[in-house]
Amino acid sequence: MSRFTLRIWQVMLGGALAVLLLGQISPVNAIYAINIDVMVFLFGMFVVGEALSRSGYLDMLARRLFRHARTPGELVILVLFCFGILSALLMNDTLAIIGTPLVLGLAARSRLPAKMLLLALAFAITTGSVASPIGNPQNLLVAVNSGMTAPFVTFASSLLLPTVISLAATWLVLFFFYRKELGVPLAGETGPATAPDPALTRIVQCSLAILVGLALANIIASLFTGAIVIPLPLIGVAAALPVLVFSSRRVAVLRSIDWCTLVFFAAMFVLMAAVWETGFFQSVAGTAGVTSVPAILATSVVISQFISNVPFVALFSPLILQAGGGTARLMALAAGSTIAGNLTILGAASNVIIIQQAESRGETLTFFEFAKIGVPLTLLQVGIYAVCLGVL
Rank of each mutant, 00 (worst) to 15 (best):
L161W: 06
P113Y: 01
I36N: 07
G14N: 08
G49R: 09
A340W: 08
T154H: 14
F280R: 10
L161K: 14
A88Y: 00
N218K: 03
S308E: 07
L17V: 14
L95D: 01
P72N: 04
I31D: 08
T170N: 14
G23D: 08
A334S: 14
M268L: 15
I307F: 06
L90Y: 03
L321Q: 06
S350F: 03
A349F: 11
I355V: 12
A209I: 09
T291M: 13
I219N: 01
S222N: 12
A240E: 05
T126Q: 10
E277W: 03
A238S: 15
A131I: 02
P101G: 04
M1I: 05
T94A: 07
V79H: 04
R249C: 13
F175R: 15
F152V: 04
L216C: 12
G191D: 03
K372V: 12
F367L: 06
T299C: 13
V47F: 07
A334W: 02
S166C: 07
A328S: 14
A150Q: 14
E189D: 11
D258I: 04
F312R: 09
C206D: 05
G44N: 11
S55I: 00
E359D: 02
L315N: 08
A266I: 06
I31Q: 12
M116I: 00
F155Y: 04
F370L: 03
R67Q: 12
P198R: 03
L379D: 05
I98P: 13
S129H: 10
V253Q: 06
A371H: 04
R67H: 13
N145L: 12
V38R: 08
V251K: 15
L333D: 09
V142A: 04
N139F: 11
V19N: 01
I339G: 04
M91L: 10
I85G: 07
L161G: 13
V382P: 13
N351L: 05
A215D: 01
E359T: 01
D258M: 12
E363H: 06
F43T: 06
M272R: 09
T71H: 10
L379E: 00
L140A: 15
I219Y: 09
F46Y: 13
L254H: 06
V40H: 12
C82H: 07
W259D: 02
I307Q: 05
R70S: 08
T94F: 02
L346F: 11
G226K: 00
L42Y: 04
D59M: 08
Q205S: 10
V375I: 15
T190H: 14
G49A: 15
G73V: 09
I85K: 09
V79S: 02
R255Y: 04
L343W: 05
G188V: 03
